[in-house]
């Protein structure tokens, strides 16, 4: 898509692409701990059935994945592997942090071997709180991520500019009104020079 490379995309085309992207997301499952089972229930069980949302849960490699669900405790020993697998994913990529451990360390907040939140090593788009979250909560996180993708300006994302002008201008306010959910301000969270979007928290509320 040369148009994207040059950073110029007509808005209607962007919309079209975004709809396409949001309904054909390949997810790399990153089962680490208890939450992996709930993620498995959301992805593999007939009751929750994530495929109806247009999410394909079975790529065996991060190189084909559009987003990753980090579900469970990230330990200091595991953190380099988590980072490396994230780097192997092609852009554009998104991260859902599932469960209290991946969000902030959870019940192991004082442990000597647990990384206190996966957001220390990767930029996180959606936080799903809970210990573990129910599969429904993860599904809502996916739906919220899809909403964000639909409102994204791909050109701006490619230029690593202001995160999403489309979203910034009109749709964020609309989404806020519709959902009445406060998106948390967290400017200090950016890891690289890349401007990071405000993360979504399932169920609203602050992150820290």
């Amino acid at each position: 898509m040369g148009l994207v490379d040059r950073g110029r995309m007509p808005a209607p085309l962007t919309k079209l692409f975004n709809i396409g992207r949001s309904y054909s997301m390949w997810v790399y499952q990153w089962g680490l701990a208890c939450c992996a089972i709930e993620m498995g229930a959301a992805f593999a069980s007939p009751r929750y059935d994530v495929m109806r949302l247009g999410v394909i849960p079975l790529p065996a490699s991060p190189r084909q994945a559009d987003f990753v669900v980090v579900s469970g405790t990230v330990t200091d020993k595991m953190a380099p592997a988590v980072r490396r697998l994230y780097e192997q994913m092609p852009e554009p990529k998104y991260v859902i942090s599932m469960g209290s451990c991946a969000n902030c360390g959870g019940p192991y907040w004082d442990s000597y071997s647990v990384t206190k939140g996966v957001d220390q090593i990767l930029p996180v788009d959606v936080y799903v709180p809970g210990c573990p979250p129910r599969p429904e909560a993860l599904l809502e996180g996916i739906v919220l991520l899809q909403q964000r993708i639909r409102n994204e300006d791909m050109g701006a994302k490619w230029r690593h500019e202001e995160y999403s002008s489309l979203q910034a201008s009109n749709t964020r306010a609309a989404a806020n009104d519709a959902r009445k959910k406060a998106l948390k301000q967290s400017g200090k969270r950016s890891t690289d020079d890349q401007p990071t979007p405000e993360p979504i928290v399932v169920g609203g509320g602050p992150i820290e």
Binding site: D76, K77, G105, W109, D110, S111, Y112, S113, K116
Partner: peptide
């Protein structure tokens, strides 16, 4: 067995501090 190779100290000794608790 458990900890990364560069880890210092012996965690289950009583004088091993839990740093997170020192702060908060």
């Amino acid at each position: 067995l458990y900890l990364p190779g560069e880890f210092e100290g012996y965690p289950l000794r009583k004088d091993f501090p839990l740093l997170a608790r020192m702060i908060k």
